[in-house]
């Protein structure tokens, strides 16, 4: 369970999150929608532990643990995963060796044994096949020269391999063609589990036809201004955000 209470965050003296409160229960898929610049990516970075932000007030608890005290890699090992809105290219770091390093680093932090190479290869191959990622992409530098859609699939591949218990998907649907959207959604749905929760950030109701949310939250000016069920997304599609922009305190 992720609990965010009264979160105030600024960057470079600019206030972005203004007392945001949100709870996502185990097994829940929560969708966040909101206008450009409302702070959705900021929220996801702050949860994941990006160092540039200043948390002025509030707390973030993952299964009761205060994640704000943890460094980014410790949060990952604790089960947090962020699928980036803009996955980064890392030249010279082969995707395969990166995946292995990441998996083993998390295992090490959790006091688990390293994964045998054969098991690792098998797991990667299975996950890649499921997401339609060709093997030769895994031999290239991480995300280097990948298309926008390929990068998003690679994020989901990492998510599948690392098996986190809290997943944040920041606009994973943008840049995906219709077929890829289905593939990626199926990948996400396959990971749905009573012990795993998702925070799905999106601008498009269409994604929510594939990944059906339990709750939908509207964010504006760094706050959650309205929460509801999946029908709220449909409503937003019809009305836009104009009414909500004024709701924030």
């Amino acid at each position: 369970m992720l609990e965010i209470r009264n979160l105030h965050v600024s960057i470079e003296d600019k206030k972005i999150l203004n007392g945001l409160t949100l709870t996502v229960h185990d097994g829940e898929v929560a969708a966040i929608m909101g206008p450009n610049g409302s702070g959705k990516s900021t929220l996801s970075y702050v949860i994941a532990g990006k160092p540039d932000y200043e948390v002025l007030d509030g707390e973030i608890l993952l299964d009761g643990q205060n994640v704000l005290e943890l460094e980014a890699h410790e949060r990952a090992a604790a089960g947090l995963f962020l699928a980036f809105q803009y996955p980064l290219e890392i030249p010279g770091v082969a995707t395969m060796s990166f995946l292995k390093a990441a998996m083993n680093a998390q295992r090490k932090i959790r006091g688990e044994e390293e994964m045998a190479t054969a098991d690792f290869m098998k797991a990667v191959r299975a996950a890649a096949d499921g997401l339609g990622i060709p093997q030769d992409m895994l031999r290239r530098g991480l995300n280097v020269g990948f298309s926008g859609g390929e990068k998003k699939r690679m994020e989901i591949l990492q998510m599948a391999l690392l098996a986190p218990n809290f997943c944040i998907l920041d606009e994973t649907d943008s840049g995906l063609d219709i077929d890829a959207l289905k593939v990626v959604s199926e990948g996400v749905n396959a990971l749905r589990d009573p012990k795993r929760a998702f925070l799905v950030i999106t601008h498009y109701q269409r994604l929510l036809n594939y990944i059906v949310p339990d709750t939908v939250h509207v964010m504006a000016h760094g706050q959650v201004v309205k929460s509801g069920g999946k029908e709220l997304a449909l409503e937003l599609e019809a009305t836009g955000y104009a009414d909500y922009k004024t709701l924030a305190a």
Binding site: D52, H73, I90, Q106, Q158
Partner: peptide, 27 residues
């Protein structure tokens, strides 16, 4: 820093993330 954060967000401690990037750099 953004690349380092990306690697750290996947579970690599800072020094390991740096090592991965530096190995690629000299590689």
């Amino acid at each position: 820093d953004d690349l380092l954060f990306y690697l750290m967000a996947r579970g690599l401690p800072r020094l390991e993330a740096e090592a991965l990037m530096l190995a690629a750099f000299v590689g």
